[in-house]
Design a binder for these strands. Sequence first.
DNA 1: CGTCTATTTGAATGTACTCAAAAGCGGTGG
DNA 2: CCACCGCTTTTGAGTACATTCAAATAGACG
Lengths: 195, 195
Amino acid sequence: MNINTLLTHISNYSTLTEDEVESLKSVLIPRPFRQGEIIVNAGDAARYMMYVIDGYVMTYYTGEDGADHVVQFAADGWWTGDLFSLSKENKTLYSTRALSDGEMLLLPRSAQSQLLDNHINIEKYFRMLFHNALMRQQMRIIENNINTAEERYNLLIITYPKMEQFVPQKYIASYIGITPEFLSKIRKNKAGILS
Amino acid sequence: MNINTLLTHISNYSTLTEDEVESLKSVLIPRPFRQGEIIVNAGDAARYMMYVIDGYVMTYYTGEDGADHVVQFAADGWWTGDLFSLSKENKTLYSTRALSDGEMLLLPRSAQSQLLDNHINIEKYFRMLFHNALMRQQMRIIENNINTAEERYNLLIITYPKMEQFVPQKYIASYIGITPEFLSKIRKNKAGILS
DNA sequence: CGTCTATTTGAATGTACTCAAAAGCGGTGG
DNA sequence: CCACCGCTTTTGAGTACATTCAAATAGACG
């Protein structure tokens, strides 16, 4: 199992002791996945945090009307899904689906609680991780309010140029909060401008 | 200074030692505020996290066009503003403004770093605080995409009924991402239905 | 009371959605 | 290898949601 990518990621935030590294290694579960596979289903017990080593996944919320709403895309080097694994909630509200073949590491809920309680540097890592994620989400809410759909789309493909190559358009549409039909029209306009 | 409200809040998440309580008390700065006062201005050095003891404040982002966008309201018992005080950034992107007279506790940036490094239970508290805030923000993004402006408004006043009494409508409009004019029309429709 | 700001109202416009149908595309089986 | 199936994307017409701009009204505060 290639845990190095995660250790490198952690080292950007916090310095783990040998002991902490070993404790972490001992509880992570490698989990390969295939394109299209549903890795976690909303309503399941909230069991894992997931760290993507290779490939692409997305996490989405299914509304009362049955429509899916993409919350997050994740590529290698990203944690994803199931923040609720740490909270009081038993069930996760979100589903996670593979957009390509790949592999992730699962960090089980109970093991994570143990790690956090016993290893201050791991606690620190997650504190900083959540803090950064929170700042980004806050900015995303503002950007959603300020920008039109077309501007949100442009921002997305500038920030993550590779995303278009592996994410079906309808999921991109969902992520930026519009219908697939309307995204198609936006793209058509852009093409017209460039030609 | 009334720090008890904060200590109670912390005790919901983490149990502090006597020593930790003393350390925390020693660095908090009471800060009374008056209605309309700008407590923090965007572009200022990111100096404090703020915990509201009494009264109401809001935190907002000023766009390139000069328009303000409300990020968060905070009443007593809420942390607010300036998440960036903990990050690498030197300047805060957000301004904080008092919506009523009241009082807050300031937790200076440097003191907070010290506290987090030296007191695992305080680190744990903030980890859980950020984690909860992150879950809420994620859900807010989804709700913004799913719901119309009218539904977002209804959701807000059901969740925080008292808010209408002290927050000017234009700020509520900003928070839910619409113009003040359109919020006025939404409210007019509701009144019509009720009469 | 007067001034300043917030809110309301209305008309015209722009942005995004719905619904329906057609076209494109990838995989599967014959 | 091709024909078909299911799913995604495109296209268009009609509609709904939300904004802009301008003007009138209402409230707050000194």
